[in-house]
Design a protein around this nucleic acid. Structure first.
Length: 218
DNA sequence: TGCCAGGCCGGGT
DNA sequence: ACCCGGCATGGC
């Protein structure tokens, strides 16, 4: 099993090259981006992030203080702007009260504790929490998203009916516990997903994973 | 034009 | 415990 997951990894890496995730300047920006990108195209998130940067608001202190209505307007390009403004505020309130807005202390927490704490914030679910643990804190928590499910289910490497945590365990049990590996693995899955495994395109034309585990069938 | 994008929550069964 | 509607912009 371990061999198979590593084989898939090398196929993707050889075909696509390293992805250099997360596309952000600093850990705090990763956290904000992780919330903004929920069910949203990354190019839209970039516009929202740039709006915040232009106003010099991309700091824990500034974001904790800004009026929520103004925040919503600034992040508008990312979609769901009202609910996401609330989610950002929920995180900032918790982060300020619990860690005094100290990002180093936050990210130094043991990964399981960090994950549980993040999940306690309304608006941060499993994928967002795992993304923060992996890409902001640099700790090995494998991130599952719709592409992960779609690609591996189509290749029948996981059952059609599988929970988030079951897929996460599948990867974490089958790979060495290495944050750099988890980082690149998930980024490559997203790259392959966008390129070859969209919802409405089951053909796999040109996909480097075509043919693993007899998919697609002729 | 309609569908999709790096989810998550809350209410109803 | 599941299931489903709501949230919303921008790109192709």
């Amino acid at each position: 099993m371990q061999k198979t997951l590593m084989e898939i990894y090398h196929k993707m890496l050889n075909s696509c090259g390293p992805q250099h995730w997360w596309p952000a300047d600093e850990p705090f920006e990763v956290i904000i981006g992780a919330i903004l990108t929920q069910n949203t195209n990354w190019s839209n998130v970039e516009k929202a992030i740039n709006n915040l940067k232009a106003e010099k608001l991309l700091t824990p202190k500034q974001l904790a203080q800004i009026d929520i209505k103004k925040l919503a307007q600034l992040i508008k390009p990312a979609g769901y702007f009202n609910i996401k403004a609330k989610r950002l505020k929920n995180f900032l309130k918790w982060f300020t009260e619990t860690y005094e807005g100290n990002i180093e202390i936050l990210l130094k927490q043991p990964k399981n504790k960090l994950r549980e704490e993040l999940l306690s914030v309304n608006g941060i679910g499993r994928e967002t929490a795992d993304s923060i643990v992996l890409y902001a804190a640099g700790q090995p928590s494998f991130v599952i998203d719709t592409y992960t499910y779609r690609i591996f289910a189509r290749h029948k490497l996981i059952p059609e009916e599988t929970s988030y945590d079951e897929i996460k365990t599948f990867f974490e049990d089958g790979l060495p516990e290495d944050a750099s590996l988890f980082n690149e693995y998930h980024a490559l899955i997203v790259k392959i997903g966008k390129e070859y495994c969209k919802k409405t395109n089951p053909l796999c034309d040109g996909c480097p994973l075509k043919g693993i585990n007899n998919f697609p069938e002729e």
